[in-house]
């Protein structure tokens, strides 16, 4: 029986590899809150990820629960934060953008379904004060 010629196998694997290398995006922050986003129908894609700053709101993960309880918390970058830190965070994020991209900055609120509106509203109020007016409620397609 003639042997199967496998010399093209590496090329094949390489092309799949490149595909995944391009589409991959490393998770940039370690999540310290758990959230399950709501499901909606009127969703649009977030086009340029570099313009998006994330605000995570949800219950602390299990390891932090002993210290912080199960009330919803806000996470900015890598650490827990208070509502009053948001303005500073937005200013930092805005400063890191190129000048021509600044008007297109978006803030994505990744909130847990069961979070009370109180926190979300406080966050929104701070975002308004920081002039970050274009926001996205992150959600899953229904």
């Amino acid at each position: 029986m003639p042997e199967l010629n496998t010399s093209s196998l590496p090329d094949l694997i390489f092309s799949i590899l490149f595909f995944f290398m391009i589409v991959t995006s490393m998770r940039e922050v370690e999540l310290k809150v758990e959230f399950k986003t709501p499901a909606g129908t009127e969703l649009e894609k977030l086009e340029r990820k570099s313009l998006v700053s994330n605000i995570y709101i949800g219950k602390p993960t299990r390891e932090f629960r002993a210290k912080l309880g199960t009330q919803s918390r806000i996470q900015l970058n890598d650490k827990f934060a208070d509502v009053s830190h948001i303005r500073e965070y937005i200013q930092d994020e805005r400063a890191s953008l190129a000048e021509r991209d600044k008007p297109f900055m978006k803030v994505s609120i990744k909130g847990d379904k069961d979070t009370q509106m109180g926190i979300i509203t406080d966050v929104k109020m701070e975002l308004r004060k920081a002039w970050a007016l274009s926001i996205v409620y992150s959600a899953a397609q229904r």
């Binding site: 590899l17 991959t24 990820k49 308004r128 992150s138």
Partner: peptide, 27 residues
């Protein structure tokens, strides 16, 4: 290349970030 492929397969998360776009009023 298989090993690298598997590494990227595991770390990848397809870009499926969607959301409801909203414009807030001025402060």
């Amino acid at each position: 290349s298989f090993i690298m492929l598997i590494f990227f397969l595991v770390t990848t998360s397809m870009d499926t970030d969607r959301g409801l776009h909203v414009r807030l009023p001025n402060p």
